[in-house]
């Protein structure tokens, strides 16, 4: 069986990202999963066990300071070289900013079609995508080249299937065009122990109704009790209640968790665009006419400052 290349995403703190495990799970349906680690020196060693646990038969490791030192172009160059050599059945990436950007460059280098924000992929390469704020389902296919697909996090349930991967080091030969966008500084901001927003299986978001930045503690408390990430609507972000990186919606992140809790969010289409495909939606809002209730599997019409503390208390009681 042909190899299916999975481009690995990992963080220093938590290791291999969940979406990569989803990609490996998906890759097993399409061929022989081969993980591609593109990073600085020593990047692959820490990730090997986890990648093997989810079925990677092979790990291609491209480790070089210059891969980390410049934005995506070096990664795309190394990957394109690998694709030309091994002729994989498909190339799978995460539909993260970086994943899409690598895919973009790869598509041009190989003159190959690309599909992004895919939520399902069949063995014949037919992909499912959701468009227009989650209102439309599209099936699509790459018609030139191999399936080059960026998968939206939380689309596949990762399942382990142990393999013992062999590791192959890749040569990193970069040209001048790969080294134009230099990373000057990377600043890690404290985000505590909460899961990453797009990967979280539970997201608790606050909107304008939360009232001020201080009150977001209430949103954070409920998120922590449910083991979830915190999100915010555009209205809340624009009002300065919560940082932009946590914005869910049209001009922010798209999330698709098992559970989405909307607190004080009216549910404007711009917000729905980012959360409509969540499995279960729960809302608390004092306005009974708020459009969020049209989506909610369970809604409480009431004052979130009464409902949320009571819910938090009830969760603690049940532990």
């Amino acid at each position: 069986m042909s190899e299916v290349l999975v481009v690995v995403e990992a963080t220093r703190e938590f290791g291999v990202k969940k979406v990569t495990l989803e990609l490996l799970t998906l890759a097993r349906e399409l061929g022989t999963p081969a993980a591609v680690v593109l990073g600085g020196p020593g990047a692959a060693a820490a990730l090997g066990d986890k990648l093997g646990e989810y079925g990677a038969e092979k790990i291609y490791a491209a480790e070089h300071e210059e891969i980390d030192g410049y934005l995506v172009a070096p990664k795309a160059t190394v990957l394109a070289e690998l694709v030309r050599r091994v002729q994989p059945a498909a190339v799978l990436l995460a539909a993260s900013q970086e994943g899409k950007e690598i895919a973009a460059r790869l598509a041009v280098k190989l003159d190959n079609g690309v599909l992004t924000d895919v939520v399902g992929l069949a063995a014949d390469g037919t992909a499912t995508q959701v468009a227009f704020a989650g209102s439309t389902i599209v099936t699509s296919k790459v018609t030139r080249g191999l399936p080059l697909v960026a998968l939206r996090p939380n689309s596949v349930t990762p399942s382990p299937a142990a393999a013992t991967p062999t590791v192959e080091q890749l040569d990193v030969a970069l040209g001048g065009a790969d080294k134009l966008a230099r990373v000057v500084e990377r600043v890690a901001e404290q985000k505590g122990s909460r899961p990453e927003l797009t990967e979280a299986s539970v997201v608790v978001s606050g909107g304008r109704g939360v009232g001020n930045a201080d009150n977001f503690k209430l949103v954070e408390e409920l998120a922590d009790l449910l083991g979830g990430a915190v999100g915010a609507s555009r209205a809340a972000v624009d009002s300065g209640f919560y940082p932009h990186q946590f914005q869910v919606g049209q001009t922010g992140k798209t999330v698709s968790p098992q559970l989405y809790v909307a607190l004080g969010i009216s549910g404007a289409i711009q917000h729905r665009a980012g959360m409509q495909t969540s499995k279960t939606i729960v809302a608390v809002n004092k306005d009974a006419e708020a459009p969020i209730f049209e989506l909610a599997d369970f809604g409480v019409v009431g004052d979130l400052f009464k409902v949320v503390p009571q819910a938090a208390e009830e969760i603690r009681k049940r532990r």
Binding site: V114, L115, A131, K141, G145, L295, D297, G299, V301, D303
Partner: peptide
């Protein structure tokens, strides 16, 4: 085109579920 849309359909509208007006 390097990719093609084979088909599209409207995602079934989510219907609101249970709604509870807070009584405390």
């Amino acid at each position: 085109a390097t990719s093609t849309v084979l088909a599209h359909s409207r995602r079934p509208e989510r219907s609101g579920g249970e709604r509870f007006t807070d009584d405390g």
